[in-house]
């Protein structure tokens, strides 16, 4: 492609003029398009659409530029239905910081004084009536305690215990239990070797709208932050919770996630899954 003509011939005046013309045209075309599109998108269309929706031109332009909320085409309806949160826990950065900066020593003291009577020494509970706490995720413990305190979840024994604790103390206890030694912690047992349950747990059952339990209930699965670790938990406790979700006895799960899932399971499946997750050493 390189032409054989002599190097370094100076540009002629005509060539220079052609080059300038190219550059000027290019700039004009580019700026022109932006200007036309800008006038259309920020002025003409919004003002015309705004007029139909009873919005004055200035507001319509502000909306099109994005300095005031809403689209020019329509007034945004304002909902006046009051929200009814099932749980008062909202995962804000402030709460995450409280949890990550919690004082484990205070947590340990409180746990030994108050909780160990029921939940066992270091959170390993000897009785199936009381859930294990050792190695449970801090966010899960915090959320449940908070829910007991606010009344979103109720239990005759737990509610008074939680009501007596402050926000900082909840976080401290949660942080303490979350850090348990490997041989005690939840999540280290082998689930029952059962192929059918294994499939339900890892694939769910799309025909009944049941998602895979392990999409949320596995370490690092990336589900909701408050998802509790259930591997290794007492089967009786797990079954009781699933039943409570299914019949509405427990309703503190955000977006009804677990109520929906559990209601789609059969009673027998709830029992089998509970045993499956309790697992074996």
């Amino acid at each position: 492609m390189a032409s054989p003509d002599p190097h370094n011939t100076p540009e002629t005046e005509a060539e220079r003029r052609a080059g300038r013309l190219w550059a000027r045209t290019a700039v004009m075309v580019v700026v022109g398009f932006v200007a036309v599109f800008g006038v259309l998108g920020f002025v003409i269309i919004p003002v015309a659409q705004g007029a139909q929706a009873g919005i004055d031109p200035w507001s319509a332009i502000c909306r099109a530029v994005g300095v005031s909320p809403g689209s020019p085409a329509m007034r945004q309806p304002v909902s006046d239905t009051p929200a009814q949160p099932v749980s008062n826990v909202a995962w804000t950065p402030a709460i995450l910081n409280t949890l990550s900066g919690a004082d484990r020593a205070t947590g340990q003291r409180l746990a030994q004084e108050v909780c160990s009577a029921c939940h066992g020494e270091s959170g390993v509970s000897p009785s199936p009536n009381f859930p294990h706490l050792a190695g449970q995720s801090a966010a899960a413990i915090y959320k449940q305690l908070h829910d007991y305190r606010s009344g979103a979840r109720f239990n005759e024994q737990m509610t008074p215990v939680a009501e007596a604790l402050s926000e900082q103390e909840l976080a401290a206890i949660a942080a303490y239990y979350a850090e348990a030694s490997d041989d005690l912690r939840l999540g280290t047992r082998n689930p029952l070797p059962d192929e059918r349950l294994q499939r339900l747990v890892s694939e769910g059952d799309p025909s009944r709208g049941i998602p895979a339990c392990n999409a949320c209930h596995a370490r690092g699965a990336g589900g909701p932050i408050e998802t509790p670790m259930i591997n290794g938990q007492h089967a009786a406790y797990l079954e009781a919770q699933l039943t409570a979700y299914a019949n509405g006895g427990r309703r503190n799960d955000i977006y009804q996630r677990m109520r929906t899932i559990s209601a789609a399971l059969t009673e027998q499946e709830r029992r089998e899954l509970a045993a499956y997750y309790q697992g074996t050493r």
Binding site: F33, V34, F37, G38, L40, G41, F42, I45, P46, R63, A64, V65, G66, S71, P72, A73
Partner: peptide, 15 residues
């Protein structure tokens, strides 16, 4: 994003 910028970028896309 607001409708105005979406419109401008849609129009530029057509180029």
């Amino acid at each position: 994003h607001s409708t105005g910028f979406k419109f401008v970028q849609a129009a530029l896309t057509f180029l």
